[in-house]
C-alpha cells in the first residue's frame, strides 16, 4: 500500500461532518500534548500553597488544584501522559496481537487451538480486572499501566487478526496465488496481513479510547502516573477527596477524557464508513 492510498480513507472520514469535528479535536489535543512545554502557562509541578483551590480566574483560566498548581497546565500535561500511555501501549498491543493472531490463523492446528482458548478466556474477563491484577504484579506507575493496557487488549487484537486471516485465506485470489506457486511467507506478508490491516488498525484506534478510560481508572485508584506527573486519571484521584470543596478539580479532567474518547469513537465510526469494513469488524 502506498502512503497516499493508505491515507485516502482518513481524508474521506474527515470530510464527513462528524468526522471533521472529531478529527479537529483529535488534532488539537495531540498538538497540545506534543507542544505542552511550549504552550502551558506554568510548570506542571509548580506549587503555590497559599493559592490553592482557586476557582477559574484570569491568572488561572481553569483554577488551581489543592497545591495551588495551575489546572490548565496540569490538563495540558495530563493530555501528554494519558495520550502517550494509551497510544503507545495500544500500538504495542496491536503489533503483538497481529503477530499472534496471524501466526495462529496461518499455522493452525494445535497452536491455533491453544491461542484461541487463552484468548477467549481472557477476552471474556473485564479489562479493568486484568489491568488491576497486572498492576499489582508489576507495581503502580506509568510502566505498570502501559503493560496492563497492552495485555488487557491483546486478546481483542489477536482474535480480530486471526479471524481476518481465516476469512481472507479462503478467498479466491489467495487460492490463485497459491496455485501459481507463491510461497507461504510471501502470501502471508504480501496478501493476508495487508488486507487484515485496516480493520485491526481501526479496532486499535477505537481501543485507544477505551485505553484512555482504563488509564484514567487506574489513575483514579492511585495506580497510574505517580505524583507530581499529571495524567487525567491521577488528577481525579486527588480530586475525589475534595468533591465538594473544589469540584472543578475532578470535573475538568473528566471532561477532557470524555470529549477525547467521544471524538475517537466518532472519528473511528467515520473511518469504518469510509473503509466500508463494518461487516468485517462485526464478524470478529
Amino acid at each position: 500500500m502506498s502512503l497516499p492510498r493508505a491515507l485516502s480513507p482518513v481524508v474521506r472520514a474527515a470530510k464527513t461532518p462528524m468526522g471533521a469535528i472529531a478529527g479537529l479535536w483529535l488534532v488539537l489535543i495531540i498538538a497540545v500534548a506534543i507542544l505542552a512545554p511550549l504552550i502551558a502557562p506554568y510548570a506542571y509541578d509548580a506549587q503555590n500553597l497559599p493559592a490553592s483551590f482557586q476557582p477559574p480566574s484570569s491568572a488561572h483560566l481553569l483554577g488551581t488544584d489543592e497545591f495551588g498548581r495551575d489546572l490548565l497546565t496540569r490538563i495540558i500535561y495530563g493530555a501528554r501522559t494519558s495520550l502517550s500511555v494509551s497510544v503507545i501501549s495500544i500500538a504495542i498491543s496491536v503489533f503483538a496481537g497481529m503477530v499472534l493472531g496471524a501466526a495462529a490463523g496461518y499455522v493452525g492446528g494445535a497452536f491455533d487451538r491453544a491461542v484461541t482458548i487463552v484468548v477467549d478466556l481472557s477476552w471474556s474477563f473485564p479489562e479493568i480486572l486484568v489491568a488491576l491484577i497486572l498492576v499489582a504484579i508489576i507495581g503502580p506507575g506509568v510502566t505498570g499501566t502501559m503493560a496492563a493496557i497492552c495485555v488487557a487488549y491483546l486478546a481483542q487484537f489477536t482474535r480480530l487478526t486471526r479471524s481476518q486471516i481465516l476469512a481472507i485465506r479462503s478467498e479466491t485470489y489467495i487460492e490463485a496465488a497459491r496455485s501459481l506457486g507463491a510461497g507461504g511467507r510471501f502470501i502471508l506478508f504480501r496478501h493476508l496481513l495487508p488486507n487484515a490491516l485496516a480493520p485491526v488498525l481501526v479496532a486499535g484506534m477505537l481501543a485507544t479510547g477505551d485505553a484512555i478510560i482504563l488509564e484514567a481508572t487506574l489513575g483514579f485508584f492511585g495506580l497510574g502516573a505517580q505524583p507530581p506527573l499529571p495524567s487525567w486519571g491521577s488528577m481525579m484521584s486527588s480530586g475525589s477527596a475534595l468533591l465538594f470543596k473544589a469540584p472543578w478539580i475532578i470535573i475538568l479532567p473528566g471532561l477532557a477524557v470524555a470529549i477525547t474518547v467521544v471524538a475517537i469513537n466518532l472519528f473511528g465510526d467515520a473511518l469504518i464508513g469510509a473503509l466500508d469494513i463494518k461487516t468485517r469488524l462485526r464478524e470478529a
Binding site: D45, Q47, L49, E66, F67, G222, P227, P228, S238, A241
Partner: peptide
Amino acid sequence: QSDSVFRRLTEVVQA
C-alpha cells in the same frame, strides 16, 4: 501510604 492526607502531605514534602 494510600490515605489521602498522606498523599497530599507527601506531594508538598516532595516539592
